[in-house]
Design a protein around this nucleic acid. Structure first.
Length: 394
DNA sequence: TCGGCAAGCCAC
DNA sequence: AAACGTGGCTTGCCGA
């Protein structure tokens, strides 16, 4: 499925490539200086030999194939202990990633005829019903770091137009609250509360007012973990805490929200009985691994059984919204064009004067997209904004 | 030179 | 001993 393509600012991408190249050169110098030797900063093998062989630093993890792990978590730990080399490697990697995967590649992807970047959306590539995007993938454009967000600023509207981005707020947690029937979570969503702060308040018995940001952050990690079929190991890894501590958190969460534990057990049972699970809309996700003789395979399938109905229902809902958007825009007399889908977000290009109407319309269509097939017991909220660039529309 | 795997990392 | 879900892209590396 190919939509209209999206315009990118070539000059902006070129400027970014230059900036990133400069930063990489600086980091490379710093890395060679700290290592006392020249090496390829793009080679994890060479990095492992230098850090854990030559320099004799305490190496933690090994990769699947037995080599020293040099991933960001490992390098962060060494950098925090005051070592210069891992810090230089982390920043080198950040800029190398941004340059090769984004600023350079997006420039190359501009179609000479349309002057725009045309991704390819696959409608049947994922097990859960999500779309996928390739050549180039426009569903993983950076947003989490300041430098990365500059890539998003290169996605622009035609003159006289703006970009509108409309995204579902916490759609997966809302669907979990509905599916698992967790009244406390549903009430919080109906009241428009900060769901992570509410979770923290319930779990740790602290007031929401004046809450320590770290406490809220922990609760947020737990909420995400729940959606993924949490394990004490995974949560401990994510939060940098001990497994015992993680286990305590999880137990406390299940005690406060017993409906979640019931939901998880029900999905595991359903998967074992039928070798598939279903979304609210009847999409089936087959899980042959649930009957594998290898316990690790079975446990993986159990986490999929927990996650797939949630992720899949969200995918079903945004598909329903997309299917309705063109007719809705035509009926409203809007000449807006739907450009991209990023799992819980739709991106449009629209004449500037139409932006307020499109924001209202997308919000209405998206928030009502489960109906009439499914009557949700929680509201679906949509944040929609206009901006000159995709970055500014966020 | 090409294809495939491993490692790593970007997004939701 | 394992190792939270769904994807795609790039580089390094190795063998055909």
């Amino acid at each position: 499925m190919e939509l209209h393509g999206v315009k990118v600012d070539v000059a902006q991408l070129s400027r970014l490539s230059s900036v990133f190249a400069q930063k990489m050169a600086e980091d490379e110098d710093a890395a060679f200086e700290a290592a006392g030797t020249r090496f390829n900063p793009g080679s994890p093998k060479q990095i492992g030999d230098i850090l854990f062989g030559d320099m004799g630093l305490p190496g933690g993890k090994k990769t699947k194939s037995g080599a020293w792990s040099t991933d960001a978590a490992v390098l962060e730990e060494l950098a925090a202990a005051g070592h210069a080399l891992p810090r230089a490697l982390l920043t080198w990697r950040q800029f190398a990633k941004l340059k090769s995967t984004y600023s350079d590649a997006l420039k190359e992807a501009i179609n000479p005829v349309t002057g725009r970047v045309h991704t390819s959306f696959s409608l049947a590539a994922t097990s859960t019903g999500r779309l996928s995007s390739s050549e180039p993938n426009l569903q993983n454009i950076p947003i989490r770091t300041e430098e990365g967000r500059k890539i998003r600023e290169a996605f622009v509207a035609e003159p006289g137009h703006v970009i509108v981005a409309a995204d579902y707020s916490q759609i997966e947690l809302r669907l979990l609250a509905h599916i698992a029937g967790v009244e406390a979570l549903k009430d919080a969503f109906r009241a428009g509360q900060d769901i992570h702060a509410m979770t923290a308040s319930e779990m740790f018995g602290v007031p929401i007012e004046g809450m320590d940001p770290m406490v809220r952050r922990n609760a947020k990690a737990i909420n995400f973990g729940i959606i993924y079929g949490i394990s004490a190991f995974g949560l401990a890894n994510n939060l940098g805490i001990s497994r015992d501590e993680a286990r305590t958190y999880i137990d406390s969460y299940f005690k406060k929200f017993p409906g979640i534990a019931d939901y998880m057990e029900a999905m595991k049972r359903e998967a074992r009985d039928r070798a598939y699970v279903e979304t609210l809309f009847g999409r089936r996700i087959h899980l042959p691994g649930i009957r594998d003789k290898n316990p690790a395979m079975r446990q993986f399938a159990e986490r999929q059984a927990i996650n797939a109905p949630i992720q899949g229902a969200a995918a079903d809902i945004i598909r329903r919204a997309m299917a309705r958007m063109d007719a809705a825009m035509a009926q409203a007399g809007l000449s807006a064009r739907m450009l991209l889908q990023v799992h819980d977000e739709l991106v449009f290009e629209v004449p500037e004067s139409e932006a307020p109407d499109l924001i209202a319309l997308a919000g209405e269509v998206m928030s009502q997209a489960a109906a009439p097939a499914v009557a949700l017991s929680v509201p679906l909220e949509v944040d929609a904004r206009a901006g000159a660039t995709w970055g500014q529309a966020h």
